[in-house]
Design a protein around this nucleic acid. Sequence first.
DNA 1: GAGACGGCGCATTATA
DNA 2: TATAATGCG
DNA 3: GTCTC
Length: 298
Amino acid sequence: MLGATNLMRSHTQTSHIRLKRTFVVVTVAREKFITPGPKKDTKKQKKIKFDPTDELWKSDINLNEDITKALGGVALLEKERKSGDPFKQRAYENAIYIITSYPARIISGAEAKKLQGIGSSIANKIDEILKTGTCESLKEKQEDAELFETFSQVFGVGPVAAKRFVDKGYKSISDLANDPDLTDMQRLGIKYVDDFKLMIPKVEAQGLIHYVQDVLKELSPAYIGIACDGHRRELSETNSLYMAITHPNYTSSPSTDPGRLLLDLTDALTDLGFLTDHISSGILKYWVRWESIEGSTI
DNA sequence: GAGACGGCGCATTATA
DNA sequence: TATAATGCG
DNA sequence: GTCTC
């Protein structure tokens, strides 16, 4: 979402709509958003750096599948245990990606450790995997890790809630529905768990965008609404839909109060029956559920 | 050995 | 009741 | 968890 936001710049403060199958997200970009961050310098060391564009790394098959599989399980476990440290998680994903691309069979942890992104901890685990075929820690808690992953699929359920559900002994997503402490977002996440997995064909997305644009124009001809992200990139289907809306009166320099910019739109769309469920609502960000309207050309 | 690894809006809960 | 912290996408 | 300083 932020990537799309970065496309909006200059002196026009921007509102943002995102439709994810049945959901719409509206965000108003802020000035600090808009400034692109500094480029990070990638300095290389004596370690071998992974470069997916290099011929050297061209490998069609994963010669180390046993290792990457086991590491994937460990990563999942680690994620569950720590309630999801995002950096640790990324470190594992990165290492697994590198090893998957590695064009030779790894015969020791030390060999793998020469690669940038693999340190002593993972190197040790690789030795264990090579020796025993698996990782000790994997054996018992694998089911928990898998449940953790399942629950994490639910919109609104992050690492903390997922772990709580595992600890409560839930075995499936339908078990979650009876939990007394669900947030509104999680209730919707459960209700639409399958819906979220659907892709939006391009034609449908175009219809949705035009629909929103028409409503927008009725509110004020000066309103501007454009599609972003996947649709902007001409993908044949997307799993989410972003729109940015703005108005000439709404500028970021000096910044003006976005006021009812979003609420007017979302109210109108709700009155029309286009939006049904509201995930969150603010003057800067609005998430709602939409439904195709009977008889419309969508 | 310590800090970076993206930053932010909204909802919810914890704390003053 | 006001503010801070947490969880989440 | 790995990398950099």
